[in-house]
């Protein structure tokens, strides 16, 4: 059904850009079990990007877009920052308006889509930097959670304002010397995951983007729970290699080093009771489907 909306008139086929033709031919809109393994065998929902070479944000974008359960009916909301360099090349509708207002935009958007398409799934996913989420936009981040708005908030935590050249942010580590923190940051990294839990999020995960399979799982869970129950929050470490003085090849190692059990990006998860129930139901359904498929396969054999 999804491809119906993007198909090309035969007469115009040859004048469409090749990346659009590729989308129609092999993007995974509508594929029920889409995920990170489609990367490489299908057209991704991201074309080129103009992030720094090797920026982990680009990996994060690719894994997230490959994992959205329902991209054909998903609208994303971005903010100003390095992520806004990527969104113009993303093949789901996305909104950039101002810096820091992403959760307010998403609140209005989700409500409008619910009014206009009652009974149909329209997912809303916010993706913004740490400055946008935690500093300038904190009130709107939290208030959307207090109101139990049904969308997913994803924060690309690179622990600084990358796009304006590496200034101090609320998610920066204490003591880090940066622009506007000339003697080192004086207060602790803001504990947004805990705040998210207390603010009413039903699913909160903090992790790095070193493992695509993990990103697939948490993105799927976050979107499904926000669709059915209420707000969800993912805080993903996407180090700004430029500002912490790493080479293009070193992003992955930086994430691996920071996710060790004793480090600040050790995997952290919170799931509310209703969300646990939903995840259990989803798992049971998956199991049933797999069993049915197996039976079908054995019958066929």
């Amino acid at each position: 059904m999804s491809k119906e909306r993007i198909k090309i008139s035969e007469d115009l086929y040859d004048i469409m850009p090749s990346d659009y033709q590729d989308l129609v031919k092999s993007a995974t809109y509508g594929k029920e079990d889409r995920g990170w393994k489609d990367i490489g065998n299908s057209k991704e929902l991201i074309e080129q990007h103009s992030l720094c070479a090797g920026c982990p944000e680009s990996m994060a974008f690719r894994y997230i877009l490959a994992s959205l359960p329902n991209p054909e009916d998903t609208v994303m909301v971005g903010s100003t920052g390095c992520t806004s360099l990527v969104f113009p090349m993303v093949a789901v509708h996305n909104i950039h308006s101002l810096f820091g207002n992403q959760n307010a935009i998403a609140s209005g958007l989700k409500r409008a889509l619910s009014v206009r398409f009652p009974g149909r799934t329209k997912d809303v996913v916010v993706l913004a930097g740490d400055g946008a989420t935690v500093d300038i936009g904190l009130d709107m981040t939290l208030q959307a959670w207090f109101r139990q708005e049904k969308f997913t908030t994803i924060c690309f935590d690179n622990e600084l304002y990358a796009n304006t050249g590496g200034q101090e942010s609320g998610l920066m580590q204490k003591g880090f010397v940066a622009k506007m923190a000339p003697v080192g940051k004086l207060f602790d990294k803001v504990r947004l995951p805990e705040i998210a839990r207390e603010s009413g999020c039903h699913y909160v995960v903090q992790c790095t983007v070193s493992k695509p399979s993990l990103i697939e799982k948490v993105v799927r869970n976050a979107v499904m729970i926000s669709r059915e129950i209420g707000p969800t929050y993912l805080q993903l470490y996407t180090p700004c290699i430029l500002e912490i003085g790493k080479n293009s090849m070193e992003g992955l190692q930086e994430m691996r080093d920071s996710e060790k059990p004793t480090e600040r990006f050790a995997y952290k998860e919170y799931v509310s009771e209703p969300a646990k129930q939903l995840l259990a139901e989803m798992a049971a359904k998956d199991k049933e489907k797999k069993a049915a498929a197996k039976q079908l396969a054995s019958q066929g054999a």
């Binding site: 609208v75 909301v77 909104i95 308006s97 101002l98 207002n101 307010a104 935009i105 998403a106 609140s107 209005g108 958007l109 989700k110 409500r111 409008a112 889509l113 009014v115 206009r116 009130d139 709107m140 208030q143």
Partner: peptide, 16 residues
């Protein structure tokens, strides 16, 4: 009001 006007924008972006 800052949030409200952004919420209005989100709703209008979504076709309301």
């Amino acid at each position: 009001e800052f949030a409200v006007m952004s919420q209005c924008a989100g709703a209008a972006f979504g076709g309301a």
